[in-house]
């Protein structure tokens, strides 16, 4: 996996395309907390060799150039990554949401975005302290992050 600077993202992909890696296999993102990693895997269809490129953008204002010029298949992947992770792909020819219909206040796949249903649904394993006298360590249900509970 090759890590490139965000400013060189489009250039690195374009260079890969000029070397034969013209087929976009995957473009997605991983939320690492204060930064978002964007990952692209591109293939050379004549040899089926693949290279993986990754870059990081700040979670606060994730902005990255679109790679649709060198890899047209990235158009849908970038639209999905934009709506799910809140990454803006500058220069995307058609930046409409791809999958989501309703407006989500925060990008659903960000770790900081609460899973509202899990937060709002009583966890059946939560022990009512009024009934249960044995001391138990405070447990959060699986899939619920501490930071969600502290959020307004």
């Amino acid at each position: 996996m090759t890590t490139v600077d965000a400013r060189e993202w489009a250039g690195a992909l374009s260079e890969a395309a000029s070397k034969g890696y013209v087929y976009l296999d995957l473009l997605t993102a991983v939320d690492d907390g204060d930064r978002i990693d964007v990952i692209a895997r591109v293939l050379d269809p004549s040899t089926m060799d693949a290279v993986m490129l990754t870059t990081s953008v700040a979670s606060e204002d994730p902005l990255l150039p679109s790679i649709v010029a060198s890899h047209p298949a990235a158009a849908w992947h970038e639209r999905e990554t934009a709506e799910m992770f809140g990454v803006t792909f500058a220069g995307h020819p058609d930046p409409r949401p791809l999958i989501l219909r309703s407006v989500h206040e925060r990008p659903p796949l960000r770790r900081s975005t609460p899973l509202v249903e899990r937060l709002a649904t009583p966890w059946p394993a939560a022990v009512d302290p009024a009934v249960e006298r044995r001391p138990r360590r405070q447990q959060l249900p699986p899939g619920v992050r501490t930071e969600w509970v502290d959020q307004p």
């Binding site: 989501l100 989500h104 659903p108 899973l115 509202v116 249903e117 649904t121 899939g143």
Partner: peptide, 11 residues
């Protein structure tokens, strides 16, 4: 029937 294992997914 219910959303199944994806009942908590926002979409």
């Amino acid at each position: 029937s219910t959303g199944g294992p994806y009942w908590d997914a926002p979409t």
